[in-house]
Nucleic acid binder design. Structure first.
Lengths: 337, 337
DNA sequence: GCGCGGCTCTATAACGTTATACAGGCGATG
DNA sequence: CATCGCCTGTATAACGTTATAGAGCCGCGC
């Protein structure tokens, strides 16, 4: 554990500063001395003490990715991508679990980790524009996903309204007319508002009536809530012939309720989700979904954050809408079926 | 961020050391001064610079949980528990993704993060006893899951042989005789060996023949591999009437192959997995599984690691076998059905 | 009156690194 | 030949904290 710069300096017969320069190339070092130092480093197996380095530099080399739930496969898949990208840029990514808790999100935003992390990628669900604007310090911040717009931070998301419209368009094209929406906003969750708006707009553009009984609110976006609300929808006098779910987890919960009720998918009820989690590629039936470009979102978020941290990016905050595509699977009938 | 010990000291009119003592109580401070200092802290909103503190103390307050894949819900669920437990003990838990890569596991073991983390919880899959024994430094280590036994480190796992036996027993009790096993060891993965052993032993104890054509090897333990190998099993002249899968993901992949082949579960083929991931509670059919006590594993791993780090635990390394239970669901028929 | 122990508090040296200021040598320039 | 600048390398002051040694004060016993 204990081999440090001084040990190397002694061994190579040079000063501390020279060793430091060899290690991180802040200033040029003559070829002969560089070799001597490098040899000493190799022999003694030196690796810099990051704590000390970062105390000096004022940076820790850690960035955080805060998501509402680690157990949502969408975020797990995103995290894997972001971790790899961060590692490639020399950073370590720390996962934070906000548990969709407003206080936790606020604390993170205010910089509760400010001495630990250099920057934060946040997927907000319980806070909005005002809270983000009120933030005065805490280092660079990149927002991902929906929820907060028009704030002075880099922001990466898909176009939720368009995504919803694409889903509804698909359902209409396969002949569905009574289309339900599961996952309406439980108050302050703007992402749900956006997807709801896309749902309404699309219905209107196809001259389909908006029926409030076909809109199901959920407190959280889980399989369990999807199952519960789907049961309610099936209990209607005139149940829906299609369901658009806020996300894939809800859709899979809906599958469960449909299976228990003996409804066939897609014959009786077609289902579309959003997220394209791997689970939906193996469920029975497989799940038609709107697939965001997770690679792009994860990598871009990390790259923008690192650019801000290192000061190489000073341009105005950027809002990026990453592409999405509709992936047809069994839950809406196979193409040509 | 800028408000540090010195600022507080000036404001309260005392020395640096006194403020430090108020903050972390290393030595007693008079009541009157303590109050003055506390007031200054509150007014200026001081929070200690963890980098500096840890440089001085030689600890960082970070621990890592290294798992083979973040996107495996079992590990995501475990991580959520471990993160909460670590936070309660004043530590921040960093997730590391080994991607089931031998080199990554070795690097982590050797202490590639030694200046960043105080200790490591590792779920090894590509390294074995010798590699762990060869380790000379790198701070406290707690092993979870299977794979490595008889090493001088705390180790938390379920009894894999017994778990497998319980699964087989259940399948036998519901009348199955041709029981396949998916997820045999692809070489060095000892966990698969153990589950395989439980499978063999259980078959023997029920006087059932061991048929090698009913054992499917997989390179990784994913839904995709489960689907592929299940297809192969169904192509046999005399296909199995039950499948015991290495884990739930494989079982769910097998579901997919069974659905595509038009096989009914559990009527034609019964399926049992291990892990009890939430996905299996909503799949169609729902998945019978061996449920490890994830709460216990996650919390115990963190507690043991922290105890080692803080030196409060000096007893010999402990191997804990946490309990498991069989959870009956549709994939083996409902109780009494 | 002097020394001694107990109680608060202070001064300060680390921890391991990086960035700044500076020193010496040497070739090029005026 | 003196001056300037470049090139290497060194010495050292931070970064913000904690632990150690010790300073001042007070009361008590000899």
């Amino acid at each position: 554990m204990g081999v440090n710069l001084k040990d190397i300096a002694q061994r190579a017969g040079v000063s501390l500063a020279t060793v430091s320069n060899v290690v991180n190339g802040y200033r040029p070092v003559g070829e002969r001395t560089r070799q001597r130092v490098q040899q000493a480093i190799d022999e003694l197996g030196y690796s810099p003490n990051l704590g000390a380095r970062h105390l000096r530099r004022g940076r820790t080399g850690l960035i955080a990715l805060a998501v509402p739930e680690l157990t949502n496969p969408y975020f797990a898949e995103l995290a894997e991508i972001a971790i790899a990208e961060a590692a490639g840029l020399g950073y370590t990514l720390v996962m934070e679990n906000t548990a969709a808790d407003r206080e936790t999100e606020l604390a993170l935003l205010a910089g509760s980790r400010r001495h630990i992390i250099d920057g934060l990628i946040l997927s907000p669900v319980r806070i909005g524009r005002e809270e983000v604007l009120a933030r005065t310090s805490g280092g660079p911040l990149v927002l991902i996903g929906e929820g907060v717009h028009d704030v002075p931070h880099d922001h990466i998301a898909i176009d939720n309204v368009a995504a919803s419209q694409a889903a509804i368009q698909h359902l209409v094209e396969i002949g569905r007319r009574r289309i339900a929406f599961i996952g309406a906003a439980g108050g302050d969750r703007q992402s749900a508002h956006l997807r709801m708006r896309g749902y309404r707009d699309a219905l209107a553009s196809y001259s389909l009536p908006f029926r409030s009984e076909l809109v199901a609110r959920t407190d959280e976006f889980s399989r369990l809530e999807g199952m519960r609300t789907m049961r309610d929808l099936l209990a209607l006098d005139d149940p829906p012939d299609a369901v658009f779910a806020y996300n894939d987890l809800i859709a899979i919960g809906a599958f469960r309720a449909l299976a228990e009720a003996g409804c066939r998918v897609p014959e009786d009820v077609a289902v579309v989700g959003i997220d394209d989690i791997e689970e939906g590629r193996f469920s029975s039936p497989t799940l038609t979904t709107i697939a965001p470009d997770k690679e792009e979102i994860g990598r871009l978020a990390v790259r923008r954050l690192v650019a801000r941290i290192e000061g190489t990016e000073v341009a105005a905050p950027l809002t990026v809408q990453t592409p999405f595509r509709l992936v047809r699977r069994e839950s809406t009938g196979t193409p040509g079926g």
